[in-house]
Computed example of a mutant assay.
Amino acid sequence: MADVNNLQLLWFALIGVLFAGFFFLEGFDFGVGMATRFVAKDLPERNQLISTIGPVWDGNEVWLITAGGALFASFPGWYASLFSGFYLILLIILFGLIIRGVSFEFRSKMQTPATRAIWDWTLFIGSLIVPFFFGLMFTSMVKGMPMDAEGNIRATFTDYFNLFSIVGGVAMVLLCFLHGLNYIRLKTIGEVHVRAGVYAKRLYIVLFIGLAAFAGLLYTSTDFFTVHPVSTWSLLALIIVLSILATFGAYKDKEILAFITSGLTLVALVALLFFGLFPRVMVSSISAENSLMISEASSTPYTLKIMSWVSLTFLPIVLGYQTWSYYVFRKRIKKESGVEDSYGG
């Protein structure tokens, strides 16, 4: 802790905020993409769901791009170890983002149901694999990877795919799917609105089982409870409380409450992982001495200072624009691709 200066701490926190913002915003995009194969029963309903995220999905992905750029500039050592050690996982994530992005464009240009179905499936697959492999990567990272003193990771299949990482990936998929269902209820009217509520009420039971499994594996697979017991227990309690509130909102048709709390659950999960990592950025399973620390991975103070001033200048503009875009596209979507003026709920 003493080795971490204020600028390093600031940028470690900002990267956490960027990932949290990404999962809050892009999380419901992933959920809507997955819901196209379950909630929507025909082409007009599928179009209705996609219309809810059509104006915003690409803007939401900017949070991930910014997080990656900030990671590269502020913590090049972390970036190097993470991207080399998780190269294949990140390649799969990139593949999922690409096929998901192009599916929005190509599906509307297909002339036959068969060809359109191909891009509908790529939308679903991309929306599924991205949160799964993000969850798998983050849980593998906090569990610890076989990293030597030079920051090189020489991992085997079981270092990436183990019970903890798979549960983490499934939990992330469930959270994003539920967040998407809550967003659908907030943004649509008609049968998909009702159907999304039915799915959400059923899946929250599964989610609590998944969260219990995740918490148990977090206890046995990481040192979070010994290194940061207060923040770990507090954030786990917060995740449970937020999940209960989201469940209450789903059952009582309080759509705004359900959506906000499901998104904040994702934010709290990211906070849990970042608090547990601190003051490390990469955990070594070989030796604690090989773990990469914030102070070792960061850029120079001058670089961090310049980045801070640039961020302070442009961040309010970006946030203002994104808030305005959500305000413009705030209305509910009908099955016939129309809109209704008020939210209700």
Score class of each variant (00 low, 15 high):
S165V: 13
Y199N: 04
I189Q: 11
Y204T: 04
L186D: 04
I209N: 08
G168R: 03
G180L: 03
G168T: 12
A196T: 07
A200S: 15
K187I: 09
S165I: 11
F208I: 15
S165P: 13
A171M: 13
Y183L: 06
V167S: 07
F164N: 08
V194L: 11
R202L: 15
V192S: 03
A171E: 10
Y199A: 05
L174Q: 13
V167M: 12
F164L: 06
K201C: 08
F177S: 05
V167I: 15
S165K: 08
G168D: 11
G190K: 10
H179A: 05
H179C: 06
K187A: 03
L181G: 02
T188H: 11
C176M: 11
H193S: 10
L174C: 13
L178K: 00
V194M: 11
K187N: 04
V206Y: 04
L175M: 14
I205G: 13
Y199R: 02
V167W: 00
R185A: 08
F208G: 09
G168S: 11
I166D: 03
L175P: 01
L178G: 03
T188D: 07
G197F: 05
L181V: 03
G197M: 09
S165F: 10
G180Q: 08
N182P: 05
V194T: 13
V170K: 02
V170C: 08
